[in-house]
Write a protein that binds this DNA or RNA. Structure first.
Length: 115
RNA sequence: UGAGCAUUUCGGGCAGUCGCGUGCCUUUUGGCACGAGGAAAGUCCGGGCUCCGCAGGGCAGGGUGCCGGAUAACGUCCGGUGAAGGCGACUUCAAGGAAAGUGCAACAGAAAUAUACCGCCAUAUUUAUUAUGGUAAGGAUGGAAAGGCGAGGUAAGAGCUCACCGACCCUUUAGGUAACUAUUGGGUCCUGUAAACCCCACCCGGAGCAACAUCGUUAAGGGGAGUUAAGUUGGCCCGACAGUCCCCGGGUAGAUGGCUUGAGCCAUACAGUAAUGUAUGGCCUAGAUAGAUGAUUGCCUGCAAAACAGAACCCGGCUUACAGAUUUGCUCAUUUA
RNA sequence: GGAGAAGUACUCAAGUUGGCCGAAGAGGCGCCCCUGCUAAGGGUGUAGGUCGGGUAACCGGCGCGAGAGUUCAAAUCUCUCCUUCUCCG
């Protein structure tokens, strides 16, 4: 299994925000933009408004874990940015996981194999 | 048994599966080791380190403020003194100077550092009173009103005089390194405020790892000031520096080092009341750069795995947040012996 | 990560050599005029939060981000905490 490629440039983030399509959930907001070179990238945004460093780190870890588990089911070649919303504070992994799957299905980047 | 005061340590443990960061070994797969805190937080102090001009002097500015000690240093810590609170164990305290000077004290009150509204007394006029003078005992105001109380004294009064008490200044003796405590004699009777200016003593150059160093990338030039009196530091001055470039706006791409062996941790012995220091032996314990600890299952302790919370150059403190468990010593009350 | 600035009625805010300060002023709200009606415009005056008391007029306490301290007295001075905003390469 290859490593998860992350987005680490501010300009790329801004491009995805302005040009990508977005769907919003109670827990998360997901922006998707097809990448030019065919590599999937993941970016996670957690605002400072959500809470202190522990809460923000917890949210990032839950999102990253959910992406890692479901990476096989996501069709490649997309830049995906996941933004955590306020309801994510205090929830457990299962809620975050189902929320992410729901949004990825809306974006139709979910290639269901197991269902 | 109840109530309370101080204080120590911990902040779940073990195992399985998938996954993350760093290092090492293999190098296609992979394997092994290590991997957040008592506050990592707030950035409130102090220091190391780096650069700024060699890190100097004065003014300004800022900080600290009982005494002695500890320390690299501190606004921290330890031991003592004093004051306040508590029956007590004990706790709290920015605790120098108001008798060097200046300012301020609203409203109220007659008057706020100086006085005469009412009252009391004397004299004159007159007997309703009015005027002048004396007075700080009594009233009233205020947070604060000329040290308190008694006796003498007086026209009425007053530290005006005296006894006792209190405060302050000088002083004698004893104890203590000192703050200070006890004490002898003399003098004085003075509002509060220095977290108002100030005085006294001591301390402080500035900026910060987004510092800084090395290697590289982009680029395009334009405008302004200056020519030995301008520039450079932190506000100013002096001194110093370099000996031609400086400022404004615009453009560009980052990588590596700094980055963890340190005033380090643990154990023992000795010195010291203690903070702490010295010696010997052992140990190596995160180092990321959109930023590593998560998901899940089982067992154990427990009512319940459950609080506050995530290193970002590194240390010493302080402050604030914190569910629950826990060590040791002491005080008071009640009962029984 | 580091360095700073600010917080006052519903909103924007003035006030900080400590005292007559629940706090000037503007918007907003509310009343009147104008209009067939409304908006805009003009004029005028009032109350300002919260708790307690009172039939009411009104009176008293607490309140200038929160909590302590200094002082006779704190929006103002000092300390600690909270929130918001700005700057750095």
């Amino acid at each position: 299994m290859k490593k998860t490629v992350t987005i680490n440039k501010n300009t790329l983030f801004r491009k995805i925000y302005s040009k990508g399509t977005s769907y919003v959930n109670k827990y998360l907001a997901v922006y998707v933009l097809p990448s030019k070179d065919g590599i999937s990238r993941l970016g996670i945004t957690v605002s400072k408004k959500l809470g202190c460093a522990v809460i923000r780190n917890r949210a990032k870890r839950l999102i990253r874990e959910s992406y890692r588990i479901n990476e096989e089911n996501i069709s490649g070649g997309y830049n995906i940015v996941v933004v955590a919303r306020k309801m994510v504070v205090g929830t457990d992994f299962h809620h975050v996981n189902s929320a992410l799957i729901h949004l990825l299905k809306k974006h139709s980047v979910w290639t269901a194999e197991n269902e």
